[in-house]
């Protein structure tokens, strides 16, 4: 029998544990808040976590998977399978308002909605995470990690990072 969803206490305990594992590059967001966990399936042979990677070349993805195996294994599961899915692809549109607020709290401007039309999303004004001014400019489409780009705020004269819309 396959058990899914959060209504089952055993599955719920796994979801709760996954909610305590953070993205090593964005330590304010858990894997659940980052929306990389799509499903938890339990059956007689163990547990399967369905994982949707953010940027596929991101080295943090491998660390997250390692952490899932260790932490869920420690709950008493001998076999922890991780199934990668690209369908539908992970997108920054999945992040909810509280996750975006947490990004802002560590100085990262959150991504805008509507990443499907990337050119339009990138054309939207970007608000500085420190002073909230929209008098900002993009300095680099890329940044210190694959998911970020570099901006500068003309109002508070501070450079900051912005989560790339994807």
């Amino acid at each position: 029998m396959v058990i899914r969803g959060k209504q089952n206490p055993e599955a719920l305990a796994i979801w709760e544990e996954l909610g305590k594992i953070v993205d090593p590059e964005i330590p304010v967001l858990s894997l659940v808040e980052l929306k990389v966990i799509r499903d938890v399936r339990l059956n007689d042979s163990g547990v399967t976590i369905v994982f949707a990677p953010t940027f596929v070349g991101c080295p943090a993805v491998a660390m997250m998977m390692e952490e899932i195996r260790t932490r869920i294994g420690a709950l008493g599961y001998e076999t922890v399978n991780i199934e990668t899915t690209f369908s539908p692809p992970w997108s920054t549109d999945l992040l909810d308002d509280s996750a975006k607020e947490k990004l802002r709290s560590i100085g990262i401007a959150p991504p805008p909605k509507g990443s499907e039309n990337l050119a339009a999303a990138l054309a939207k004004p970007v608000s500085c995470p420190f002073c909230r001014s929209e008098n900002t400019q993009r300095e680099n489409s890329f940044g210190p990690t694959l998911c970020r780009q570099i901006y500068y705020c003309n109002a508070c004269r501070q450079s900051f990072e912005r989560f790339k819309p994807l």
């Binding site: 596929v56 070349g57 680099n140 890329f142 694959l146």
Partner: peptide, 23 residues
């Protein structure tokens, strides 16, 4: 410096994409 960052990112992306095809 900006291009140093850009090409380092692009390099990491491309190698990540090769990992998807190899997988």
């Amino acid at each position: 410096l900006e291009e140093d960052i850009a090409f380092s990112n692009i390099a990491q992306d491309e190698i990540g994409h090769s990992l998807v095809w190899f997988t």
